[in-house]
Design a protein around this nucleic acid. Structure first.
Length: 493
RNA sequence: GGGCCCGUAGCUCAGCUCGGUAGAGCAGGCGGCUCUUAACCGCAAGGUCAGGGGUUCGAAUCCCCUCGGGCCCGCCA
Protein backbone atom coordinates (compact mmCIF):
# COMPACT_ATOMS: atom_id res chain seq x y z
CA UNK A 1 0.00 0.00 0.00
CA UNK A 2 0.93 3.63 -0.08
CA UNK A 3 3.78 4.58 2.16
CA UNK A 4 3.35 7.69 4.21
CA UNK A 5 5.37 10.57 2.89
CA UNK A 6 7.23 13.09 5.02
CA UNK A 7 4.56 15.58 3.99
CA UNK A 8 1.84 13.40 5.40
CA UNK A 9 3.74 12.80 8.63
CA UNK A 10 4.00 16.56 9.03
CA UNK A 11 0.26 16.94 8.66
CA UNK A 12 -0.47 14.14 11.12
CA UNK A 13 1.74 15.92 13.60
CA UNK A 14 -0.48 18.98 13.17
CA UNK A 15 -3.54 16.85 13.94
CA UNK A 16 -1.86 15.57 17.08
CA UNK A 17 -1.04 19.12 18.14
CA UNK A 18 -4.63 20.12 17.47
CA UNK A 19 -5.99 17.28 19.60
CA UNK A 20 -3.54 18.02 22.41
CA UNK A 21 -5.20 21.42 22.67
CA UNK A 22 -8.54 19.68 23.14
CA UNK A 23 -9.78 20.59 19.67
CA UNK A 24 -11.44 18.19 17.24
CA UNK A 25 -9.81 18.05 13.77
CA UNK A 26 -12.89 16.35 12.26
CA UNK A 27 -15.97 17.99 13.82
CA UNK A 28 -19.53 16.92 13.01
CA UNK A 29 -21.14 19.95 11.47
CA UNK A 30 -20.83 23.66 10.87
CA UNK A 31 -24.27 25.30 10.99
CA UNK A 32 -25.10 28.71 9.68
CA UNK A 33 -22.57 29.13 6.93
CA UNK A 34 -23.34 31.05 3.75
CA UNK A 35 -21.93 30.49 0.27
CA UNK A 36 -18.85 32.57 -0.48
CA UNK A 37 -20.58 34.59 -3.19
CA UNK A 38 -22.81 36.10 -0.49
CA UNK A 39 -19.77 37.61 1.18
CA UNK A 40 -18.32 38.74 -2.11
CA UNK A 41 -21.43 40.68 -2.98
CA UNK A 42 -21.71 42.07 0.57
CA UNK A 43 -18.17 43.40 0.23
CA UNK A 44 -18.75 44.80 -3.23
CA UNK A 45 -19.82 48.25 -2.03
CA UNK A 46 -16.87 48.82 0.30
CA UNK A 47 -13.91 50.97 -0.55
CA UNK A 48 -10.42 49.39 -0.58
CA UNK A 49 -9.02 48.99 2.92
CA UNK A 50 -12.47 49.16 4.50
CA UNK A 51 -14.29 46.50 6.50
CA UNK A 52 -17.86 46.54 7.73
CA UNK A 53 -18.25 45.19 11.29
CA UNK A 54 -22.03 45.30 10.88
CA UNK A 55 -21.96 42.56 8.24
CA UNK A 56 -20.55 39.39 9.71
CA UNK A 57 -20.64 36.04 7.97
CA UNK A 58 -19.72 32.43 8.39
CA UNK A 59 -18.26 30.57 5.40
CA UNK A 60 -16.75 27.12 4.87
CA UNK A 61 -14.69 25.48 2.17
CA UNK A 62 -11.33 24.17 1.13
CA UNK A 63 -8.13 26.16 1.53
CA UNK A 64 -6.52 26.46 -1.85
CA UNK A 65 -3.54 28.58 -0.98
CA UNK A 66 -1.99 30.53 1.88
CA UNK A 67 0.09 33.67 1.49
CA UNK A 68 1.85 34.76 4.68
CA UNK A 69 3.23 38.22 5.11
CA UNK A 70 4.43 38.34 8.70
CA UNK A 71 1.65 40.06 10.64
CA UNK A 72 -0.98 39.53 7.95
CA UNK A 73 -1.93 36.53 5.83
CA UNK A 74 -4.24 35.81 2.92
CA UNK A 75 -6.00 32.49 2.51
CA UNK A 76 -8.03 31.46 -0.54
CA UNK A 77 -11.12 29.47 0.34
CA UNK A 78 -13.04 27.53 -2.35
CA UNK A 79 -16.60 26.36 -2.07
CA UNK A 80 -19.22 25.34 -4.64
CA UNK A 81 -20.17 29.00 -5.14
CA UNK A 82 -16.64 30.02 -6.05
CA UNK A 83 -13.74 31.40 -4.12
CA UNK A 84 -13.23 33.93 -1.35
CA UNK A 85 -10.13 35.44 0.18
CA UNK A 86 -9.82 35.29 3.96
CA UNK A 87 -7.82 38.08 5.57
CA UNK A 88 -6.02 37.15 8.79
CA UNK A 89 -4.53 39.93 10.89
CA UNK A 90 -2.37 39.33 13.92
CA UNK A 91 -3.59 42.57 15.50
CA UNK A 92 -7.21 41.39 15.34
CA UNK A 93 -6.76 37.71 16.19
CA UNK A 94 -4.05 38.09 18.82
CA UNK A 95 -0.49 37.13 18.19
CA UNK A 96 -0.68 33.64 19.69
CA UNK A 97 -3.90 32.65 17.91
CA UNK A 98 -2.62 34.10 14.65
CA UNK A 99 0.63 32.14 14.81
CA UNK A 100 -1.24 29.00 15.83
CA UNK A 101 -3.51 29.16 12.82
CA UNK A 102 -0.72 29.61 10.35
CA UNK A 103 1.27 26.80 11.94
CA UNK A 104 -1.54 24.26 11.80
CA UNK A 105 -3.32 25.02 8.53
CA UNK A 106 -2.32 23.61 5.17
CA UNK A 107 -3.64 23.98 1.67
CA UNK A 108 -6.24 21.31 1.14
CA UNK A 109 -7.74 21.58 4.64
CA UNK A 110 -11.48 22.10 4.95
CA UNK A 111 -12.02 25.09 7.22
CA UNK A 112 -14.78 27.34 8.44
CA UNK A 113 -14.36 31.04 9.09
CA UNK A 114 -16.31 33.70 10.95
CA UNK A 115 -15.59 37.31 10.14
CA UNK A 116 -16.79 40.50 8.55
CA UNK A 117 -17.04 41.67 4.97
CA UNK A 118 -14.09 43.71 3.85
CA UNK A 119 -12.12 44.81 0.84
CA UNK A 120 -8.32 44.78 0.98
CA UNK A 121 -6.22 47.77 0.05
CA UNK A 122 -5.62 46.14 -3.31
CA UNK A 123 -9.38 45.87 -3.83
CA UNK A 124 -10.00 42.13 -3.29
CA UNK A 125 -13.35 41.35 -1.63
CA UNK A 126 -12.50 39.37 1.49
CA UNK A 127 -13.69 38.05 4.79
CA UNK A 128 -11.70 39.64 7.59
CA UNK A 129 -11.51 36.66 9.91
CA UNK A 130 -12.35 36.86 13.61
CA UNK A 131 -12.02 33.10 14.15
CA UNK A 132 -11.34 29.95 12.17
CA UNK A 133 -12.56 26.38 12.66
CA UNK A 134 -10.85 23.31 11.25
CA UNK A 135 -13.59 21.14 9.72
CA UNK A 136 -11.50 18.36 8.18
CA UNK A 137 -7.73 18.09 8.14
CA UNK A 138 -6.27 17.01 4.80
CA UNK A 139 -3.44 14.56 5.28
CA UNK A 140 -2.63 14.16 1.62
CA UNK A 141 -1.51 17.36 -0.10
CA UNK A 142 -3.62 18.62 -3.03
CA UNK A 143 -2.17 18.58 -6.57
CA UNK A 144 0.05 21.42 -7.75
CA UNK A 145 -1.81 24.68 -7.24
CA UNK A 146 -1.13 26.26 -10.59
CA UNK A 147 -0.90 23.41 -13.10
CA UNK A 148 -3.37 21.14 -11.33
CA UNK A 149 -3.42 17.42 -12.01
CA UNK A 150 -1.93 16.91 -15.48
CA UNK A 151 -1.26 13.17 -15.41
CA UNK A 152 -4.03 11.68 -17.53
CA UNK A 153 -3.95 8.36 -15.75
CA UNK A 154 -4.31 9.99 -12.35
CA UNK A 155 -7.14 12.14 -13.63
CA UNK A 156 -9.01 9.03 -14.67
CA UNK A 157 -8.27 7.04 -11.55
CA UNK A 158 -8.90 9.87 -9.10
CA UNK A 159 -11.49 12.19 -10.60
CA UNK A 160 -11.99 13.93 -7.27
CA UNK A 161 -8.47 15.35 -7.51
CA UNK A 162 -9.14 16.59 -11.00
CA UNK A 163 -12.36 18.26 -9.85
CA UNK A 164 -10.48 19.77 -6.93
CA UNK A 165 -8.07 21.64 -9.16
CA UNK A 166 -9.86 22.05 -12.47
CA UNK A 167 -12.64 24.61 -12.76
CA UNK A 168 -13.21 23.27 -16.26
CA UNK A 169 -13.93 19.78 -14.93
CA UNK A 170 -16.28 21.17 -12.29
CA UNK A 171 -18.05 23.11 -15.03
CA UNK A 172 -18.49 19.96 -17.15
CA UNK A 173 -20.02 18.16 -14.17
CA UNK A 174 -22.49 20.98 -13.66
CA UNK A 175 -23.43 21.35 -17.33
CA UNK A 176 -23.99 17.62 -17.76
CA UNK A 177 -26.29 17.54 -14.76
CA UNK A 178 -28.31 20.50 -16.02
CA UNK A 179 -28.60 19.08 -19.55
CA UNK A 180 -29.76 15.69 -18.25
CA UNK A 181 -32.36 17.51 -16.17
CA UNK A 182 -33.58 19.27 -19.34
CA UNK A 183 -33.87 15.95 -21.14
CA UNK A 184 -35.99 14.53 -18.32
CA UNK A 185 -38.21 17.60 -18.23
CA UNK A 186 -38.72 17.48 -21.98
CA UNK A 187 -39.93 13.89 -21.92
CA UNK A 188 -42.07 14.45 -18.85
CA UNK A 189 -43.63 17.57 -20.36
CA UNK A 190 -44.62 15.48 -23.39
CA UNK A 191 -46.42 13.01 -21.13
CA UNK A 192 -43.79 10.28 -20.97
CA UNK A 193 -43.63 8.24 -17.79
CA UNK A 194 -40.16 7.52 -16.43
CA UNK A 195 -39.75 3.83 -15.57
CA UNK A 196 -37.01 1.49 -14.41
CA UNK A 197 -36.49 -1.96 -15.87
CA UNK A 198 -34.03 -4.60 -14.69
CA UNK A 199 -30.29 -4.24 -15.08
CA UNK A 200 -29.79 -7.93 -14.21
CA UNK A 201 -31.37 -10.06 -16.92
CA UNK A 202 -31.19 -13.71 -18.02
CA UNK A 203 -30.90 -12.71 -21.71
CA UNK A 204 -29.27 -9.45 -22.79
CA UNK A 205 -31.25 -8.42 -25.84
CA UNK A 206 -32.21 -5.36 -27.83
CA UNK A 207 -28.79 -4.84 -29.40
CA UNK A 208 -25.85 -6.78 -30.77
CA UNK A 209 -23.07 -6.55 -28.20
CA UNK A 210 -21.24 -8.78 -25.75
CA UNK A 211 -22.79 -8.63 -22.27
CA UNK A 212 -21.11 -8.71 -18.88
CA UNK A 213 -21.96 -11.98 -17.15
CA UNK A 214 -22.49 -12.24 -13.41
CA UNK A 215 -23.89 -14.79 -11.01
CA UNK A 216 -26.93 -14.87 -8.74
CA UNK A 217 -26.40 -17.00 -5.65
CA UNK A 218 -30.12 -16.90 -4.94
CA UNK A 219 -31.14 -18.16 -8.37
CA UNK A 220 -28.15 -20.42 -8.76
CA UNK A 221 -27.86 -19.08 -12.29
CA UNK A 222 -25.82 -16.71 -14.43
CA UNK A 223 -27.30 -13.33 -15.17
CA UNK A 224 -26.21 -10.64 -17.58
CA UNK A 225 -26.09 -6.87 -17.31
CA UNK A 226 -28.47 -5.31 -19.81
CA UNK A 227 -27.05 -4.02 -23.09
CA UNK A 228 -30.23 -2.06 -23.92
CA UNK A 229 -33.67 -1.42 -22.44
CA UNK A 230 -35.66 -1.88 -25.63
CA UNK A 231 -37.31 -5.23 -25.00
CA UNK A 232 -38.65 -4.66 -21.45
CA UNK A 233 -39.88 -1.18 -22.40
CA UNK A 234 -41.85 -2.61 -25.33
CA UNK A 235 -43.27 -5.20 -22.97
CA UNK A 236 -44.61 -2.30 -20.91
CA UNK A 237 -46.45 -1.08 -24.01
CA UNK A 238 -47.95 -4.57 -24.35
CA UNK A 239 -49.06 -4.06 -20.75
CA UNK A 240 -50.93 -0.89 -21.63
CA UNK A 241 -48.42 1.89 -21.09
CA UNK A 242 -48.52 4.41 -23.94
CA UNK A 243 -45.53 6.68 -23.43
CA UNK A 244 -42.56 5.51 -21.37
CA UNK A 245 -38.89 6.33 -21.11
CA UNK A 246 -35.98 5.02 -19.13
CA UNK A 247 -32.79 6.91 -18.41
CA UNK A 248 -30.08 4.70 -16.99
CA UNK A 249 -26.91 2.74 -17.43
CA UNK A 250 -26.44 0.01 -20.00
CA UNK A 251 -23.34 -2.15 -20.20
CA UNK A 252 -21.48 -3.58 -23.17
CA UNK A 253 -18.46 -5.77 -22.77
CA UNK A 254 -16.47 -3.97 -25.47
CA UNK A 255 -13.44 -1.70 -25.73
CA UNK A 256 -13.20 1.83 -24.46
CA UNK A 257 -12.44 4.57 -26.98
CA UNK A 258 -13.32 8.20 -27.51
CA UNK A 259 -16.98 7.42 -28.28
CA UNK A 260 -17.52 4.09 -26.48
CA UNK A 261 -17.59 3.26 -22.80
CA UNK A 262 -18.35 -0.23 -21.45
CA UNK A 263 -20.71 1.41 -18.98
CA UNK A 264 -22.77 4.22 -20.47
CA UNK A 265 -25.93 6.18 -19.85
CA UNK A 266 -28.71 5.54 -22.29
CA UNK A 267 -32.17 6.91 -22.79
CA UNK A 268 -34.81 4.88 -24.55
CA UNK A 269 -38.39 6.00 -25.11
CA UNK A 270 -41.43 4.24 -26.62
CA UNK A 271 -44.57 5.94 -27.86
CA UNK A 272 -47.73 4.05 -28.77
CA UNK A 273 -49.81 4.93 -31.84
CA UNK A 274 -47.04 7.09 -33.29
CA UNK A 275 -44.48 6.33 -36.01
CA UNK A 276 -40.87 7.24 -36.67
CA UNK A 277 -41.78 10.46 -38.46
CA UNK A 278 -43.53 11.74 -35.37
CA UNK A 279 -40.61 10.58 -33.23
CA UNK A 280 -38.22 12.47 -35.43
CA UNK A 281 -40.17 15.68 -35.00
CA UNK A 282 -40.17 15.16 -31.24
CA UNK A 283 -36.46 14.39 -31.13
CA UNK A 284 -35.48 17.35 -33.31
CA UNK A 285 -37.44 19.54 -30.94
CA UNK A 286 -35.46 18.10 -28.05
CA UNK A 287 -32.15 18.74 -29.80
CA UNK A 288 -33.07 22.31 -30.66
CA UNK A 289 -34.07 22.94 -27.06
CA UNK A 290 -30.90 21.38 -25.66
CA UNK A 291 -28.63 23.20 -28.11
CA UNK A 292 -30.20 26.45 -26.94
CA UNK A 293 -29.67 25.56 -23.28
CA UNK A 294 -26.08 24.47 -23.92
CA UNK A 295 -25.36 27.79 -25.59
CA UNK A 296 -26.63 29.57 -22.46
CA UNK A 297 -24.75 27.33 -20.03
CA UNK A 298 -21.37 27.12 -21.70
CA UNK A 299 -18.76 29.86 -21.61
CA UNK A 300 -17.60 31.04 -25.02
CA UNK A 301 -14.94 28.59 -26.22
CA UNK A 302 -13.83 26.63 -29.28
CA UNK A 303 -15.75 23.63 -27.89
CA UNK A 304 -18.96 25.64 -27.69
CA UNK A 305 -18.48 26.90 -31.22
CA UNK A 306 -17.90 23.34 -32.44
CA UNK A 307 -21.08 22.17 -30.74
CA UNK A 308 -23.11 25.06 -32.12
CA UNK A 309 -21.85 24.36 -35.65
CA UNK A 310 -23.01 20.75 -35.50
CA UNK A 311 -26.53 21.73 -34.47
CA UNK A 312 -26.97 24.78 -36.68
CA UNK A 313 -30.15 24.30 -38.72
CA UNK A 314 -31.15 23.03 -41.13
CA UNK A 315 -30.27 19.44 -40.37
CA UNK A 316 -29.54 17.17 -43.30
CA UNK A 317 -31.57 14.10 -44.25
CA UNK A 318 -30.15 11.31 -46.37
CA UNK A 319 -31.63 8.02 -47.52
CA UNK A 320 -29.34 5.19 -46.38
CA UNK A 321 -29.30 3.38 -49.71
CA UNK A 322 -29.35 6.37 -52.06
CA UNK A 323 -26.57 8.08 -50.14
CA UNK A 324 -24.46 4.94 -49.93
CA UNK A 325 -24.80 4.30 -53.65
CA UNK A 326 -24.00 7.93 -54.43
CA UNK A 327 -20.98 8.11 -52.11
CA UNK A 328 -19.57 4.74 -53.17
CA UNK A 329 -20.46 4.97 -56.85
CA UNK A 330 -21.81 1.43 -56.67
CA UNK A 331 -25.42 1.07 -57.92
CA UNK A 332 -27.89 -1.65 -57.02
CA UNK A 333 -26.42 -2.41 -53.58
CA UNK A 334 -29.74 -3.52 -52.15
CA UNK A 335 -30.01 -6.34 -54.67
CA UNK A 336 -26.51 -7.67 -54.14
CA UNK A 337 -25.94 -10.99 -52.43
CA UNK A 338 -24.21 -11.40 -49.09
CA UNK A 339 -21.11 -12.68 -50.90
CA UNK A 340 -20.98 -9.72 -53.27
CA UNK A 341 -21.37 -7.27 -50.41
CA UNK A 342 -18.70 -9.09 -48.43
CA UNK A 343 -16.25 -8.72 -51.33
CA UNK A 344 -16.93 -4.99 -51.64
CA UNK A 345 -16.54 -4.54 -47.87
CA UNK A 346 -13.24 -6.40 -47.89
CA UNK A 347 -11.98 -4.24 -50.72
CA UNK A 348 -12.44 -1.14 -48.56
CA UNK A 349 -10.57 -2.68 -45.65
CA UNK A 350 -13.26 -4.17 -43.44
CA UNK A 351 -12.11 -7.19 -41.46
CA UNK A 352 -15.44 -8.40 -40.07
CA UNK A 353 -15.85 -12.19 -40.17
CA UNK A 354 -16.88 -13.63 -43.55
CA UNK A 355 -19.86 -15.31 -41.94
CA UNK A 356 -21.36 -12.03 -40.72
CA UNK A 357 -24.99 -11.38 -41.67
CA UNK A 358 -25.65 -9.45 -44.88
CA UNK A 359 -26.66 -6.32 -43.01
CA UNK A 360 -23.28 -6.09 -41.33
CA UNK A 361 -21.52 -5.59 -44.66
CA UNK A 362 -23.96 -2.85 -45.67
CA UNK A 363 -23.29 -1.08 -42.36
CA UNK A 364 -19.52 -1.37 -42.91
CA UNK A 365 -19.87 0.19 -46.34
CA UNK A 366 -21.96 2.98 -44.90
CA UNK A 367 -19.37 3.63 -42.20
CA UNK A 368 -16.64 3.72 -44.79
CA UNK A 369 -18.26 5.81 -47.52
CA UNK A 370 -20.83 8.03 -45.83
CA UNK A 371 -20.00 8.63 -42.16
CA UNK A 372 -16.77 10.56 -42.85
CA UNK A 373 -18.76 13.00 -45.00
CA UNK A 374 -21.08 13.98 -42.15
CA UNK A 375 -20.23 17.54 -41.09
CA UNK A 376 -23.33 18.50 -39.10
CA UNK A 377 -26.46 16.99 -37.61
CA UNK A 378 -27.64 14.45 -40.18
CA UNK A 379 -30.60 12.09 -40.22
CA UNK A 380 -29.97 8.84 -42.06
CA UNK A 381 -33.28 7.19 -42.90
CA UNK A 382 -34.85 3.99 -44.18
CA UNK A 383 -32.11 1.41 -43.72
CA UNK A 384 -32.04 -1.96 -45.47
CA UNK A 385 -34.13 -4.52 -43.63
CA UNK A 386 -31.12 -6.79 -43.16
CA UNK A 387 -29.44 -4.27 -40.85
CA UNK A 388 -32.24 -3.96 -38.36
CA UNK A 389 -34.12 -6.87 -36.78
CA UNK A 390 -36.38 -4.83 -34.46
CA UNK A 391 -37.74 -2.24 -36.90
CA UNK A 392 -40.95 -2.42 -38.92
CA UNK A 393 -40.88 -3.01 -42.65
CA UNK A 394 -41.13 0.26 -44.59
CA UNK A 395 -44.68 1.04 -45.75
CA UNK A 396 -43.58 2.02 -49.27
CA UNK A 397 -39.88 1.24 -49.83
CA UNK A 398 -39.37 -2.49 -50.50
CA UNK A 399 -36.53 -4.16 -48.61
CA UNK A 400 -36.27 -1.29 -46.13
CA UNK A 401 -37.35 -0.55 -42.61
CA UNK A 402 -38.74 2.63 -41.08
CA UNK A 403 -35.73 3.84 -39.18
CA UNK A 404 -33.68 6.96 -38.63
CA UNK A 405 -30.28 7.45 -37.12
CA UNK A 406 -29.08 10.87 -36.05
CA UNK A 407 -25.38 11.53 -36.62
CA UNK A 408 -23.09 14.35 -35.63
CA UNK A 409 -19.53 14.53 -36.99
CA UNK A 410 -17.69 11.50 -35.66
CA UNK A 411 -20.41 9.38 -34.17
CA UNK A 412 -23.99 8.17 -34.06
CA UNK A 413 -26.21 10.06 -31.65
CA UNK A 414 -29.58 8.34 -31.78
CA UNK A 415 -31.40 5.44 -33.38
CA UNK A 416 -35.16 5.21 -33.84
CA UNK A 417 -37.71 2.97 -35.53
CA UNK A 418 -41.29 2.47 -36.24
CA UNK A 419 -41.25 -0.62 -34.06
CA UNK A 420 -41.85 -4.10 -35.39
CA UNK A 421 -44.99 -5.42 -33.69
CA UNK A 422 -45.87 -8.47 -35.79
CA UNK A 423 -44.89 -11.45 -33.59
CA UNK A 424 -44.41 -13.85 -36.51
CA UNK A 425 -42.29 -11.35 -38.44
CA UNK A 426 -40.28 -10.71 -35.26
CA UNK A 427 -39.63 -14.42 -34.76
CA UNK A 428 -38.52 -14.72 -38.38
CA UNK A 429 -36.15 -11.74 -38.11
CA UNK A 430 -34.55 -13.13 -34.97
CA UNK A 431 -34.07 -16.46 -36.78
CA UNK A 432 -32.45 -14.72 -39.77
CA UNK A 433 -30.04 -13.03 -37.38
CA UNK A 434 -29.29 -16.29 -35.67
CA UNK A 435 -28.51 -17.94 -38.99
CA UNK A 436 -25.34 -15.91 -39.35
CA UNK A 437 -22.78 -18.18 -37.74
CA UNK A 438 -20.26 -15.45 -36.97
CA UNK A 439 -20.36 -11.79 -36.18
CA UNK A 440 -22.85 -10.26 -33.88
CA UNK A 441 -26.31 -11.52 -33.28
CA UNK A 442 -29.27 -10.31 -31.39
CA UNK A 443 -29.98 -12.70 -28.57
CA UNK A 444 -33.26 -14.49 -29.14
CA UNK A 445 -35.58 -13.38 -26.36
CA UNK A 446 -38.41 -15.91 -26.39
CA UNK A 447 -40.37 -14.03 -23.76
CA UNK A 448 -40.29 -10.90 -25.92
CA UNK A 449 -41.78 -12.74 -28.89
CA UNK A 450 -44.38 -14.27 -26.57
CA UNK A 451 -45.29 -10.77 -25.35
CA UNK A 452 -45.80 -9.58 -28.91
CA UNK A 453 -48.37 -12.37 -29.41
CA UNK A 454 -50.61 -10.57 -26.95
CA UNK A 455 -50.51 -7.44 -29.10
CA UNK A 456 -48.03 -4.56 -29.13
CA UNK A 457 -49.78 -1.42 -30.35
CA UNK A 458 -48.23 0.28 -33.36
CA UNK A 459 -45.49 2.40 -31.86
CA UNK A 460 -42.23 4.20 -32.34
CA UNK A 461 -39.15 4.11 -30.16
CA UNK A 462 -35.83 5.88 -29.85
CA UNK A 463 -32.59 5.22 -28.06
CA UNK A 464 -29.65 7.51 -27.56
CA UNK A 465 -26.47 7.65 -25.59
CA UNK A 466 -26.71 10.42 -23.03
CA UNK A 467 -22.92 10.64 -22.73
CA UNK A 468 -22.61 11.17 -26.48
CA UNK A 469 -25.43 13.68 -26.45
CA UNK A 470 -23.62 15.70 -23.77
CA UNK A 471 -20.39 15.39 -25.79
CA UNK A 472 -22.09 16.72 -28.89
CA UNK A 473 -23.78 19.58 -27.05
CA UNK A 474 -20.62 20.66 -25.23
CA UNK A 475 -18.09 19.93 -27.98
CA UNK A 476 -16.19 17.41 -25.83
CA UNK A 477 -13.45 15.44 -27.59
CA UNK A 478 -13.84 12.20 -25.66
CA UNK A 479 -16.59 10.34 -23.85
CA UNK A 480 -14.23 10.29 -20.85
CA UNK A 481 -14.60 14.05 -20.66
CA UNK A 482 -18.29 13.71 -19.81
CA UNK A 483 -18.10 10.64 -17.55
CA UNK A 484 -17.08 11.36 -13.97
CA UNK A 485 -15.57 7.95 -13.26
CA UNK A 486 -14.35 6.38 -16.50
CA UNK A 487 -13.45 2.69 -16.33
CA UNK A 488 -9.77 1.95 -15.66
CA UNK A 489 -7.78 -1.21 -15.14
CA UNK A 490 -7.55 -2.32 -11.56
CA UNK A 491 -4.10 -1.50 -10.36
CA UNK A 492 -2.33 -4.08 -8.25
CA UNK A 493 -0.50 -2.34 -5.43
C1' G B 1 -5.65 -7.75 -31.94
C1' G B 2 -1.70 -4.28 -34.79
C1' G B 3 1.33 0.30 -34.80
C1' C B 4 3.38 4.69 -32.48
C1' C B 5 4.33 7.50 -27.96
C1' C B 6 4.70 8.18 -22.57
C1' G B 7 5.96 6.67 -17.07
C1' U B 8 12.03 10.85 -13.09
C1' A B 9 10.42 13.96 -5.60
C1' G B 10 3.34 14.44 -3.01
C1' C B 11 2.30 17.71 -7.76
C1' U B 12 4.28 20.29 -12.57
C1' C B 13 8.54 19.39 -15.37
C1' A B 14 14.23 19.28 -17.04
C1' G B 15 18.06 15.52 -17.72
C1' C B 16 17.84 10.47 -22.16
C1' U B 17 19.88 12.20 -28.78
C1' C B 18 25.94 11.43 -27.49
C1' G B 19 26.25 6.12 -20.67
C1' G B 20 30.10 8.84 -15.76
C1' U B 21 26.11 7.73 -10.35
C1' A B 22 19.69 13.11 -9.74
C1' G B 23 18.08 18.89 -11.17
C1' A B 24 14.36 23.07 -10.90
C1' G B 25 9.56 25.18 -9.56
C1' C B 26 5.20 24.33 -6.46
C1' A B 27 3.68 22.00 -1.88
C1' G B 28 5.84 20.78 3.04
C1' G B 29 10.02 22.23 7.34
C1' C B 30 12.98 26.40 9.67
C1' G B 31 13.83 31.86 9.54
C1' G B 32 12.15 36.88 7.58
C1' C B 33 8.24 40.16 5.83
C1' U B 34 1.16 44.45 7.66
C1' C B 35 -2.02 44.06 1.26
C1' U B 36 -0.92 39.43 -1.30
C1' U B 37 -3.73 36.75 -4.96
C1' A B 38 1.05 31.39 -9.50
C1' A B 39 3.25 36.66 -3.35
C1' C B 40 8.47 37.33 -2.33
C1' C B 41 13.67 36.54 0.09
C1' G B 42 17.20 33.05 2.72
C1' C B 43 18.50 28.02 4.60
C1' A B 44 17.86 22.90 4.96
C1' A B 45 15.25 18.46 3.59
C1' G B 46 12.80 15.37 0.07
C1' G B 47 14.14 9.97 -5.26
C1' U B 48 13.43 1.72 -5.76
C1' C B 49 14.35 7.47 -12.25
C1' A B 50 7.06 2.28 -13.18
C1' G B 51 8.90 -3.12 -12.24
C1' G B 52 12.25 -7.12 -13.83
C1' G B 53 16.27 -8.85 -16.77
C1' G B 54 20.49 -7.84 -20.11
C1' U B 55 24.88 -5.11 -22.30
C1' U B 56 28.86 -2.31 -19.88
C1' C B 57 34.29 -0.89 -15.59
C1' G B 58 29.82 2.13 -15.03
C1' A B 59 22.64 2.57 -17.00
C1' A B 60 17.34 7.44 -15.56
C1' U B 61 20.03 7.31 -20.44
C1' C B 62 21.28 1.59 -24.79
C1' C B 63 18.58 -3.51 -25.59
C1' C B 64 14.61 -7.19 -24.13
C1' C B 65 10.27 -8.51 -21.19
C1' U B 66 6.24 -7.12 -17.90
C1' C B 67 2.78 -3.51 -15.76
C1' G B 68 0.04 1.10 -16.28
C1' G B 69 -1.55 5.13 -19.47
C1' G B 70 -2.35 7.99 -24.15
C1' C B 71 -3.12 8.39 -29.53
C1' C B 72 -4.16 6.00 -34.32
C1' C B 73 -6.02 1.62 -36.89
C1' G B 74 -9.08 -2.85 -36.39
C1' C B 75 -13.35 -4.80 -33.69
C1' C B 76 -17.78 -3.12 -31.05
C1' A B 77 -26.85 -1.67 -32.55
Amino acid sequence: MTEETALERERRAKIARWRSEGKEPYPWSFPGRVPTDVVRSAAAGLTPGESDPARSFRVAGRLRSLRRHGQVAFLDLDDAAGSLQLLLRADLLGDEAYRGWLADLDSGDIVGADGVASVTRRGEPSLEARSLTLLAKAIAPPPEKFHGLQDVEERIRRPYLDLLTSAESRERLRVRSLLVREVRRYFEAAGFLEVETPVLVPVAGGAAAAPFVTRSNYLGADLRLRIATELPLKKLLVGGAEKVFELGKSFRNEDLDSTHSPEFTELEAYWAYADYTEMRGFFEGLLAHLAGRAAELLPDSPARTKAAEAFRPPSRTVDFVDELERASGIPGLLDKSREELREIARRVGSTVPDSSPRGTFLEKLFEHFVEPTIDRLTFVVDHPEATTPLAKRHRSKPGRVERFEAFVPGYELANAYTELNDPDDQARRFEEQARGTGGDRYAYDADFVRALRYGLPPCTGIGFGVDRLVMALTGAESIKDVILFPIARTRTE
